[in-house]
Design a protein around this nucleic acid. Structure first.
Length: 214
DNA sequence: CACCCGATTATCT
DNA sequence: GATAATCGGGTGT
């Protein structure tokens, strides 16, 4: 089941936490062939508004961050460190002006061959384990800023699904911690990570996640 | 494995 | 002119 817009209308940190175990889906036209890329979301962070000095929205609306102030269920994609893109989904409760969830890591499921090409690596355990890396693996760039993933009429090539081999087992827990890569707002525990309870249920996965969890 | 550092450029002040 | 919600390569343990 594809997540609808209403899913993203809640406190940002709650959406961030609940996205763990969901599946990022991306269809891409690769030399005329329609290819599917998917991955289980294993790490997220929430970024708020005036309550959160680490958030791009903290000081108000600018050209870069305007998506964070817009409709929930749209993407906020920004360029960072001269090289990388970071994928966020706008999420906030109705009475909040801005907020988004940063997708920090996924576990690759489908389209791994194509991800390797986009990442220019054969190392499967290094494909999508970081915000810059997963944007590269899924070929997500600033072109996708403001893309609406909350309504299939507006786009049918990037969205999030509620079903996956992992979420079906429900054999994972979500742990929280402080966010990383920031210098302010370091007290907030708005980083969420998937940890599996029973590794034997996850042998169909082959990448970094298993070695990290064991 | 842990830490350190340089790359590289859009965006903001 | 400075900074950045990162990454990968290098060095040392």
């Amino acid at each position: 089941m594809r997540l609808e817009r209403s899913y993203f209308e809640d406190k940002t940190y709650r959406v961030a936490q609940s996205l763990i175990g969901k599946v990022l889906v991306r269809y891409i036209d690769f030399f005329g062939k329609y290819q599917k890329l998917t991955g289980v979301i294993t790490e997220t962070e929430a970024y708020g508004y005036t309550d959160d000095p680490a958030s791009h929205a903290f000081k108000g609306k600018t050209l870069r961050n305007e998506a964070m102030f817009g409709e929930v269920g749209k993407l906020y994609v920004y360029f960072i460190y001269g090289n990388y893109f970071c994928l966020n989904i706008v999420a906030k409760s109705r009475d909040t002006g801005a907020g988004a969830v940063l997708i920090r890591s996924v576990e690759p499921l489908e389209g791994i061959g194509l991800m390797k090409i986009f990442r220019k690596t054969n190392n499967i355990s290094n494909l999508t384990t970081g915000p810059g890396k997963l944007a590269q693996a899924f070929k997500i760039t600033k072109k996708h800023n403001n893309l609406d993933i909350g309504d299939k009429k507006n786009n049918n090539h990037i969205y999030i699904e509620d079903s996956s081999p992992l979420s079906r087992y429900h054999n994972f827990i979500v742990v929280e911690s402080t966010r990383i890569g920031i210098s302010t707002g370091t007290d907030k525990k708005w980083r969420y990570l998937m940890r599996v309870k029973n590794l034997s249920h996850y042998q169909f996965l082959s990448s970094a996640f298993l070695s990290k969890s064991s």
